[in-house]
Computed example of a mutant assay.
Amino acid sequence: MFKSSPTTVDTPKAERSPLLLTSGSENHTAPKVVVEQPVNLYAGDSKSVTEYHEFEGRGHSLTIDEDWDDVANVTLQWLSSKGF
């Protein structure tokens, strides 16, 4: 990774908004093991909130599949719990 690149993300940055990464338990495109890598990377030594939520029985297209509103509601509740 090039540290001088304008697209470089400072993942362990101490101050940033909360980050929620999501996946479905049946997601074969980006399975849990793949999504957990950026969760761990962003969490690092950061004091900022970084969390993972898995939707049981769901696939990759969480926001366009049937019951997409469950994903929206979980996300809204999570944001609310973080003061947003």
Rank of each mutant, 00 (worst) to 15 (best):
S17R: 11
R58K: 14
H28A: 15
Q37A: 12
E51K: 04
P6F: 02
D70L: 12
E56P: 08
L41P: 01
K82I: 03
E66K: 15
E54V: 15
L76K: 11
T75I: 10
V39M: 02
S23V: 13
F55N: 00
G44A: 13
G59C: 09
L41R: 13
A43C: 03
R16E: 02
F55H: 03
S46Q: 02
E36K: 14
Q77I: 03
L62D: 06
V49C: 00
K32M: 05
S46P: 00
V34P: 01
A72Y: 13
L79E: 04
D45I: 07
E51W: 05
D67L: 13
S81L: 00
P38S: 12
K82W: 05
E54M: 10
T8P: 02
P38M: 01
T8V: 13
D67W: 11
V74L: 11
F55S: 10
K82E: 03
I64A: 07
T29G: 08
T7L: 14
V71F: 12
E66C: 10
H60Y: 06
L79V: 07
R16G: 00
G24A: 05
S81D: 06
P6W: 02
L41I: 06
F55I: 02
H60M: 08
V74T: 11
E54R: 10
A43M: 04
V33M: 09
E54I: 14
G83Q: 05
R58G: 00
D65R: 12
S80H: 14
R58Y: 08
L19C: 04
A72W: 12
Q37M: 10
T8I: 09
Q37T: 14
K13H: 04
T75W: 01
D10G: 05
V9S: 07
T29Y: 12
T11E: 10
G24Y: 10
T63H: 13
N40L: 09
F55L: 01
S81Q: 13
G44C: 03
T7P: 01
I64R: 14
T11Q: 09
S17D: 09
E54K: 05
